[in-house]
């Protein structure tokens, strides 16, 4: 299906980032296309989290270029990333337990009139619509506090929040790490649906079974470098594991 003609929604070229003497990223290349689910895998310390935080604007990059829709961009802060349409769903989900689903979906971007009075009705409508468009049907009421939701439901809310703002590139950091079997199922279905809706989805995961289920392509990071991009259909778990641990010099299988 992906015949490598779709343009990259987001592309990193030769990105460096170090913290003092620790080089977290050493010239990483990375790309994700519209409508694909790209998995980002690697051992602890491979630079996955750093890469995400650079794209999210939490860290500024030391060197290298970031391209968005083919145009070079500079991301100075989370607001720049948000403006471009890049959203990161962190492992801790960044939800406020004491607030309800609608309040969390619109957190920091509330719909208000010129006097800063909240417009609750339109926010609630859009929340319901967005959840419906993602076929999230397990949430009983959008006015229940997030504290009362299950792990999978919380993940769904966090993902729906990313979609609500018409983001085009969505990063999911370990979305299934803390979930049971049924909940994992829900979230993986949701991830696939995001890709089908034309978004560029990047999923970071340690669970290769999950990765092989949802991803179209797999990027392997090792010690701050990209050691290979693999098409899911043309690779095996064994090959990926080898790339993660040993960093084989295999040329990218794609294109």
């Amino acid at each position: 299906m992906s015949t490598a003609v779709k343009p990259a929604a987001l592309e990193l070229r030769g990105v460096f980032k170090s913290f003092g003497s620790v080089e977290a990223l050493r010239g990483v290349d990375f790309e994700v296309r519209n409508g694909e689910v790209m998995a980002l895998v690697g051992d602890n310390g491979a630079g996955k989290s750093t890469l995400i935080k650079c794209v999210a604007g939490i860290y500024s990059i030391d060197d290298g270029d970031v391209y968005y829709d083919g145009a070079r961009v500079v991301i100075h802060g989370p607001k720049d990333a948000a403006k471009l349409g890049i959203e990161v769903v962190y492992q801790d989900l960044a939800l406020c337990d004491n607030l309800d689903v609608v309040q969390n979906m619109f957190l920091g971007r509330e719909d208000h009139d010129p006097l800063f009075r909240l417009r609750e009705a339109p926010m609630e409508q859009r929340t319901a619509q967005t959840l419906a468009s993602l076929s999230v049907t397990t949430i009983r009421s959008v006015r229940q506090p997030v504290a009362s939701l299950s792990g999978g439901q919380r993940q769904s809310v966090a993902v729906a929040r990313a979609v609500l703002w018409n983001n085009r590139v969505v990063f999911l950091d370990e979305p299934t790490a803390a979930l049971g079997v049924a909940q994992t199922r829900q979230v993986l279905d949701l991830v696939k649906r995001l890709g089908e809706q034309g978004l560029a989805v990047v999923i970071v995961s340690h669970n290769l079974a999950d990765v092989f289920e949802v991803a179209n392509r797999i990027t392997v990071l090792r010690l701050g470098r990209n050691v290979g991009v693999y098409e899911r259909e043309k690779t095996t778990e064994q090959e990926i594991v080898q790339a993660i641990t040993a960093g084989t010099a295999t040329e990218p299988a794609a294109s």
Binding site: Y90, A94, L95, C96, L99, L107, G108, R109, E110, L118
Partner: peptide, 19 residues
């Protein structure tokens, strides 16, 4: 008011949400 509750609920989430 909404942001006050957000900061109290999860300050890190509030910060990442641009509050």
């Amino acid at each position: 008011g909404r942001h006050v509750y957000a900061v109290g609920g999860n300050a890190e989430a509030a910060r990442r949400a641009g509050i």
